[in-house]
Design a protein around this nucleic acid. Structure first.
Lengths: 200, 200
DNA sequence: TGTACATCAGTGAACGCGCGTTCACTGATGTAC
DNA sequence: TGTACATCAGTGAACGCGCGTTCACTGATGTAC
């Protein structure tokens, strides 16, 4: 049965939201079209009307949405901190390396959750992922101390690698060796620029 | 047809080798039992005689084998460098952040290739992964400067997070934004302890 | 050492299952008058 | 504003396909004599 255009848009958004969460939780191969649409309160039949590009198109849009949400979350964290004080960066790092982020990949950064999948899938998914990483590094660079744009971007890139790597490893070992997971996250925290000065 | 016990062992090893490579290349969901055994020159029927635990058992053993190979490769790199000079660590870092490693996940470190899969799969796979990460960090710590064991281990953990994160991101964006991939890897290189002094 | 036979590593067909995708259909929406 | 009808968002059954796994069978190996 037909629904209003407003309701149709809401339904599409619900599918996208469910996809962005489920893909981060279970991987691009671990969540199917049927489950995603069911989670959005719909059946799978209408899906190809919403996303003519099929699952790949959904995955690409979900990746973009997940990056946008992460970026928005970071900007929200930055509000209320003194500009130039490094407080925004500290807040982002603290949230990124929190237990909450480690244990809730569905609402977290797409990099540790989906980077390997994006690398393998290629096409529109990898393109969306690349754009997301670039925007995320730019956002991080805006809150990173440094003299030049290139320097801030490089530092932000290094930071994201360490943050994503630490959460990636922590998630992988938290079930089999919780102490090791904490070691990795704590080591990453200790190596963050705000805890001292790095002189390359 | 029955084969000799020696040949049977060789066949099992061939399946394990193929699995260790294919799983790293395509992910645990991206390579099937049929393809792995075919790559080893066998049919899939005999597989459950070799691995009664099924695909999960194969994945767990493949993860362990991949970590062991990475560790052996690092130890090989360390041979011929002056002990305590940091030369071994420099060689490991250089190899890890090379284009060759980025573009050949099948023979590379299991962390960027399989950590997300291991986190989701749980069970014996996650247990094998946890053990592999611990051993890898211990190996890295043996070549890391520092005053205490705990300090070396923490530094090694932080190092592995940065290395794995950088390669993970580089692989994900190399198709869509090659310049960004180089930015991330170069930034990780520049942030390595051997290029300067980190004062936490 | 030679022979007869039990063992078992590997084969290939078959199983149920869930996947991504298609399509005829439904019925409320949006529109033309 | 009210009515008639075309549009189309969503439904649910169905498609082929590849997955992990099972199993009856084959025939060379390993063993007992």
């Amino acid at each position: 049965m037909r629904v209003s255009r407003q309701k149709a848009q809401k339904n599409r958004d619900a599918v996208l939201d469910a996809a962005a969460r489920l893909f981060r939780e279970r991987g691009l191969d671990g969540a199917g079209v049927a489950e995603v649409t069911r989670e959005a309160g719909l059946t799978h039949g209408g899906f190809y009307g919403q996303f003519p590009g099929g699952k790949d198109a959904l995955a690409a849009e979900a990746v973009t949405a997940a990056f946008a949400a992460t970026q928005a979350f970071w900007e929200e964290l930055a509000i209320g901190t003194k500009p130039g004080s490094g407080g925004a960066l500290a807040a982002i790092i603290s949230a990124y390396l929190s237990d909450g982020h480690r244990d809730d990949p569905g609402r977290g950064c797409p990099v540790p959750a989906l980077a390997a999948d994006a690398a393998r899938r290629g096409g529109v998914v990898q393109a969306a992922f690349s754009g997301g990483v670039r925007d995320l590094i730019d956002t991080l660079a805006r809150h990173t101390p440094g003299n030049t744009d290139a320097g801030r971007r490089a530092e932000a890139a290094r930071l994201l690698a360490t943050l994503a790597g630490a959460v990636l490893i922590a998630r992988a070992v938290s079930g089999g060796d919780p102490a090791l997971a904490n070691t990795v996250v704590d080591a990453a925290k200790a190596g963050m620029p705000l805890n001292g000065i790095c002189v390359p």
